[in-house]
Design a protein around this nucleic acid. Sequence first.
DNA 1: GGACGTTTTTGACTTTTGTCAACAGACCGG
DNA 2: CCGGTCTGTTGACAAAAGTCAAAAACGTCC
Lengths: 187, 187
Amino acid sequence: MKPFFDAFRQYAPIGEAAQADLIRMVAHESVPKGTVLLQAGQVCSRLYLLEAGMARGYYLHDGKELTSWFAFEGDVMLSMHSFTTRRPAFETIEILENSSLYSIEYEHLQYLYAHHAEISTIGRLLSEKYYVELEEHTLALQVMPAKARYERLLAQQPQVLQRAQLSHIASYLGMSQETLSRIRGKR
Amino acid sequence: MKPFFDAFRQYAPIGEAAQADLIRMVAHESVPKGTVLLQAGQVCSRLYLLEAGMARGYYLHDGKELTSWFAFEGDVMLSMHSFTTRRPAFETIEILENSSLYSIEYEHLQYLYAHHAEISTIGRLLSEKYYVELEEHTLALQVMPAKARYERLLAQQPQVLQRAQLSHIASYLGMSQETLSRIRGKR
DNA sequence: GGACGTTTTTGACTTTTGTCAACAGACCGG
DNA sequence: CCGGTCTGTTGACAAAAGTCAAAAACGTCC
């Protein structure tokens, strides 16, 4: 549980009572590559914290998979839309490397939010942080040509380029796999 | 102040004490078209709630203005990046129509978050809501061709097309003004 | 109502990126 | 170690979108 608390304590101190409730409500598990944590169409019922490994979220659009994010060690994963509205998710969450992760059930998290102000605060800070990251990614998609988007990713999240496969990266960057292959091959 | 409370009460009930503090800390003002609420390079020190009117946020990229969002009646406006990190903003917030708005100073909001759990909750819910909206916009930029992005905006936020000028809309949709003009003209 | 500045439209052309198809390499299971 | 599948690369071509430049439309201020 220590890595779990470390991941969250950086946002706000967690009191004794909150810590005790968390221990009761947080699950830990190891999952193999290929595991689907959330299937599009189902309601996202858990928030995940990736302890080790790698995962992605993707949408199906015209029969093509469209990666919307990658998650690595320490990242929180969920379908924000489905988790917060309790409606079926549009996205699927798939484990890309053998991973270990923590998770909290939706109702439990609501209980924690309601009873421990610091956990509510951590939830807000996390939500703000991921908003800012998404905003940057969005801006890149909005304004940069394909090559610049690739270079930005190379600078900001090199582990994506090292660990994810080309088709996933290409759709994340909003370009075809062939275009990405050519850019990477320096032409 | 009533419209202000109405805008927030839909997320969580606001207690007496919180209401009293809010009244002390919330400012109200009317601003003319063209007003700059936040200039890129400055730290975003206030959160705004637009009561009436219209505004946008934009970035400068290669000397071009790049609209990242439009705000209308009832929308919250800030540079999330700057407001949360206390670092200079990359974006400028500009009033596009004579408007009236409420605002809260950063330190005051932190006080409210710390002393009134329901306000912290409202902050988290707002942040989650805007994240979901941004996610949809991002997905559109990532996967849809120009024409489909235009049609999606037409269906989802027709008031943008009615009230904003073409160059702003075009950059918001990630295309040139000429392309948008041609799409709109049905060719 | 005319003249100015701004915004939008249009046309010609170029560049970027996508698509389709074939091929090469890597990876895996028997 | 072989055959098959999945992943990445390359080439030829097509489609989408950008750029530049000019003209038209619109607003608004005297």
